[in-house]
């Protein structure tokens, strides 16, 4: 353990990998000092663990109805957070809901930034009219209210989890394009890019191999901060009945089904909302901390 630490902290690394891992180790040390970011990391980690182990930690089948046990209050033996209008265990549904949430944000996190990176780096690298056209397109999408656009898209495509993800991804890419373009502009004229170009590398190769990696840190920070917003929009679509369809235990959908019983059986609607709140807070805290640590501009503060 100490040998490993020494290897990581070696001021004169022997290989590229050692240097890179050493940098990551230093970043990790800085994040660890930030208490709020660590709280965020714990929340996000818990989400991952809960989603992975759902079948083993959920006390009941999330879809199993038991009409003799409907609308039981929290702390009922066997149903820690109570039951909903079909007698389904709310805790189990929240645990399985973590999988759906993770599925949605996972798919958005791999599609929207890729699209944004592609558009942003191409615009920044080529400049000229390519840049002008692509950035105008980005501005149009950026100027569009996100939730409303997602609503209109889902209205056309039809409700469902796949279409909801598509609609969210189509509204989420513009900020990534902006970030990627800005980063590309700073490296475009540097010597190492010129060197690769002189060796005869194609633009596609330069962008994919040498520009995109430079953009990744800022994009990753943005993704983390964005995930909170994605969770909220997905829950909003679910709440309106346009996202995930019943009987799947999506958190927004669970809130909307508990709305009828709000004044008498408050827990049906409140509990899943608490889950959304905690998870999205986790991503916000982590993203905030990551930005403080990884972004040199805000590290000075």
């Amino acid at each position: 353990m100490t040998a490993l630490r020494q290897w990581l902290q070696d001021p004169s690394p022997a290989s590229r990998r050692q240097a890179r891992l050493g940098q990551m180790w230093l970043a990790w040390l800085r994040i660890r000092r930030n208490r709020l970011a660590m709280a965020g990391l714990v929340i996000v980690g818990t989400l991952l663990v809960v989603a992975a182990l759902a079948p083993w930690i959920a006390p009941h089948d999330p879809l199993a109805q038991d009409l003799t046990r409907r609308l039981l209050p929290p702390l009922t033996p066997g149903n820690l957070l109570g039951t909903d209008d079909f007698g389904r265990d709310i805790l189990s549904r929240i645990i399985y809901g973590a999988r759906i949430t993770l599925y949605i944000i996972g798919l958005v996190a791999v599609t929207a930034p890729v699209l944004g990176l592609l558009i942003g780096t191409v615009a920044g690298y080529f400049g000229g009219w390519v840049d002008a056209t692509l950035m105008r397109l980005t501005d149009i999408f950026l100027a569009f209210p996100r939730l409303i656009l997602a609503l209109a898209l889902v209205a056309v495509l039809g409700p469902g989890i796949g279409n909801a993800i598509l609609a969210i991804a189509l509204t989420a890419w513009p900020p990534y394009a902006r970030v990627a373009r800005a980063e590309t502009l700073t490296v475009r004229n540097s010597d190492y890019i010129a060197a690769i170009r002189l060796q005869g590398a194609s633009p596609a190769r330069i962008i994919a191999g040498h520009v995109v990696p430079m953009c990744l840190p800022s994009v990753i920070i943005r993704v983390t901060l964005d995930m909170a917003g994605v969770i909220l929009i997905a829950a909003g679509l679910g709440f309106l009945g346009l996202g995930v369809q019943p009987p799947l235990p999506e958190w927004g959908l669970m809130i909307s089904s508990g709305r009828k019983y709000l004044f008498e059986q408050w827990w049906v609607a409140t509990m899943p909302g608490l889950a959304i709140f905690v998870v999205s807070l986790g991503f916000n805290l982590l993203g905030d901390g990551l930005r403080d640590v990884l972004d040199p501009r805000s590290a000075a503060r």
């Binding site: 909170a228 709440f239 409140t270 909302g273 959304i276 999205s280 916000n284």
Partner: peptide
Amino acid sequence: GLMGYSMPVFWLGLIGLLVFYG
């Protein structure tokens, strides 16, 4: 502030109704 960023607004609305109205 961070809580405001992280809360689903429709959920907060339901809780507001539950507490201040109900």
